[in-house]
Simulated scan of single mutants.
Amino acid sequence: MSSSPSRITARFETLKAENRAAFIPFIMAGDPDYDTSLDLMKQLPAAGADLIELGICFTDPMADGPAIQAAGLRALAAGQTLKKTLQMVREFRKEDDATPIILMGYYNPVYSMGVDNFLAEAKDAGVDGLIVVDLPPEEDEELCLPAGKTGLDFIRLATPTTDDKRLPSVVKNTSGFVYYVSVAGITGGATGANDTVSSAVGRLKAASGLPVAVGFGVKTPERAAEIARTADAVVVGSALIEALAGALEKDQNSRDKITSAVTSLAKSLADAAHSAR
Rank of each mutant, 00 (worst) to 15 (best):
T174P: 02
A266F: 03
T162K: 03
R156G: 01
D140F: 14
K165Y: 02
A243D: 10
A233S: 02
M113V: 00
E13D: 11
V236Y: 05
Q252M: 15
V234L: 09
P211A: 00
K205F: 06
L82R: 07
V89A: 07
A17S: 10
S182M: 13
A17I: 13
N253M: 12
S254K: 09
D96Y: 04
R11Y: 14
K250A: 07
R255F: 02
L204I: 14
Q80P: 14
F26N: 09
L119N: 04
F154L: 05
D97G: 08
S268G: 12
T263R: 03
A245N: 10
A29S: 11
A122D: 01
V132I: 09
D256Y: 12
K42T: 04
A21L: 02
L135V: 07
A77I: 12
S2M: 06
P109W: 14
E18V: 06
F216P: 03
I227D: 15
K172Y: 13
D232E: 15
M62H: 07
R156A: 03
L167G: 04
T150N: 01
E91D: 15
D60S: 09
I102T: 04
T187D: 00
E139H: 08
P25G: 03
A147R: 01
P45A: 01
N108P: 14
G202P: 13
M104D: 07
